[in-house]
């Protein structure tokens, strides 16, 4: 177990280097110039611009720039924003709490509603409730998130005036509920369908027949024997999905005007702030790697047949 964790941690190093390298190169390949952008509509002073570029190290060969970035990163230096002259780490720090709150809320909705619907549908497989849940989840999967987001915003927020259409205060969980629901809609649809399939498959299993033969109540057979077996594939999906929620936040935060990581990276992309984009993406990658490791360890808790060597 300990050796397994060490090996997994070591594996993160090449993944980390590779991922940052790709993102760095992609930012470089994008047209546009963050230094020129400082002048906006006005014609820039060429001499001043050249000096600034040299000062920021943007004249160096790209590989050298990457090397500087990577060594800085290892010392905890995520770089500096060109336009605002702020440390990227501070920018992330400001945006993070809103995104964490949004993600936690969305994840909770995904788990509770997704598994709940999947369980109901699976136990009534072939019935009307099952059909309805399958239809609704298919709808959620096929309609893009931004469409769902605007629909919710327009109807729930504006026309029927049930919820505030945008988020004024990201510390208010009530205001975050709607965007979290939008963010969770795709994942919960997948989780519901995955749970349903798993339940349907397992409820006819031999051990369920044994549970019945032992004289257990239906409730106990489901909660103790069926659910735990059925949730094994779902947990794997949830782990991967937690990373996807962070990506999905880019669109959702844009729609609802939440000042989180997603919004920040979106603006940084527009103004070609390479260090900010790479910094945030690197941060998301790190979170993703750690979460996947935790999920894989959790997997062994759920399924004793899995042993890590």
């Amino acid at each position: 177990m300990g050796r397994y964790v060490v090996r997994r941690l070591l594996q993160m190093i090449p993944v980390f280097i590779g991922a940052t390298f790709i993102v760095f190169m992609m930012m470089y390949a994008l047209p546009g110039d963050p230094v020129r952008a400082l002048w906006g509509e006005r014609a820039p002073d060429e001499a001043q611009m050249a000096a600034l570029k040299a000062d920021l190290g943007l004249d160096d060969p790209i590989l050298l720039q990457y090397w500087h970035y990577l060594t800085g990163l290892l010392q905890g230096d995520f770089g500096t924003q060109i336009s605002s002259r702020r440390e990227v780490i501070d920018v992330i720090g400001d945006a993070l709490p809103a995104t964490i709150r949004l993600t936690v809320l969305a994840f909770t909705i995904t788990v509770v509603v997704g598994i709940g619907l999947g369980l109901i549908a699976g136990l009534r497989a072939g019935g009307k409730t099952d059909g309805l849940i399958l239809f609704v989840t298919l709808l959620l999967i096929s309609v893009p998130v931004f469409v769902i987001g605007y629909l919710y915003q327009t109807y729930l927020g504006v026309k029927w005036d049930l919820i505030k259409p945008t988020v004024q205060d990201s510390e208010d969980w009530g205001q975050l509920l709607l965007p979290a629901l939008v963010l969770a809609s795709l994942s919960l649809a997948y989780v519901a369908r995955l749970t349903r399939t798993s339940i349907v498959e397992n409820r006819r299993a031999d051990y369920m027949r044994t549970a019945k033969a032992k004289g257990l109540s239906a409730r106990r057979a489901v909660t103790v024997h069926l659910l735990r077996n059925s949730l094994i594939p779902v947990v794997t999906f949830l782990g991967v999905d937690l990373g996807n929620l962070a990506t999905g936040a880019i669109v959702t935060e844009g729609i609802f005007n939440i000042h989180g990581i997603g919004n920040t990276v979106f603006h940084a992309l527009n103004s070609r702030e390479g260090s900010t984009v790479v910094g945030i993406v690197t941060f998301i990658i790190l979170v993703y790697l750690v979460v996947t490791l935790i999920v894989d360890l959790l997997y062994a808790v759920l399924d004793p047949r899995i042993r890590y060597a």
Partner: peptide, 9 residues
Amino acid sequence: LSALNPVLS
């Protein structure tokens, strides 16, 4: 093997 629940002791 299949009649016993694989995830419970």
